[in-house]
Amino acid sequence: MTEMSVNKRAAILSFILLFAGLLLWEAVIPAQKAAGELTEYERLTGGGAQKAGVPPPSQVLEKAWEQLSNPFYDAGPNDKGIGIQIGYSIYRVLAGYVLAALIAIPLGFLIGMSPVAYKALNPFIQVLRPISPLAWMPLALFIIQDSEASAIFVIFICSIWPMLINTAFGVAGVRKDWVNVARTHELGALRTAFTVILPAAAPTIVTGMRISIGIAWLVIVAAEMLVGGTGIGYYVWNEWNNLDLTSVIFSILMIGVVGMALDAMFGVLQRFVVYSE
């Protein structure tokens, strides 16, 4: 017998687990009895009415096919394609995330370079960081007076901390030898920052960015359930109100897939900046 590679064996095992899981799911859902099999009493007590149950995977797949074959349709505020909903969510996440990065990375640099700035800002960071991003929502809604901007603010506030802390940590931990190399070659402060400190701290910074994008994607679903209107979070909640569990399950899967894709993007970026000593 020839040995299969680890990857091949893992892939086969994954598929087996997937099919077993789907089969189990399909099997445990009680079938609706056909009207003909009901006793008279059951018919009289409403036993023939459609019961809302957890849909089997076959229905979810059907739904997925239907939605993904036309993801961008727009039939009014309560009926938009999954592509449009996800698009809104990604737009909000990226808007809040980019704003956070624009502030967190330079500020993190400053904190990492200056022990005084680190000590001065640390208490604020330690207090603000553990606050659940959704706790900011009422305040944001009141001050900003715009639900769209408030959602973006919530993303901003939740994604700023990992980036800020990791940047500061990465910059503060740059090996003294490398800074000395810059100094003995008379590099100016700006050249040192860009040619030595930034590449040296980049792996840590990108790790922070990766954690941030993951948190932002977690938070956007909850935020959109609150602010409503558009987005994947709103879609999940709306389908729940419609008692369309097939759509709920489908959108849960989509949240997972998009989250994975966002993470993979930063995984690629990480491979670019990583170095080994």
Binding site: W178, N180, R183, A200
Partner: peptide, 17 residues
């Protein structure tokens, strides 16, 4: 420090990236 004085450190101090 200055470019007039070059330094070779014990641990090489090459930039690893």
């Amino acid at each position: 420090p200055s470019l007039d004085r070059g330094v070779v450190f014990q641990n090489y101090s090459l930039l690893p990236w």
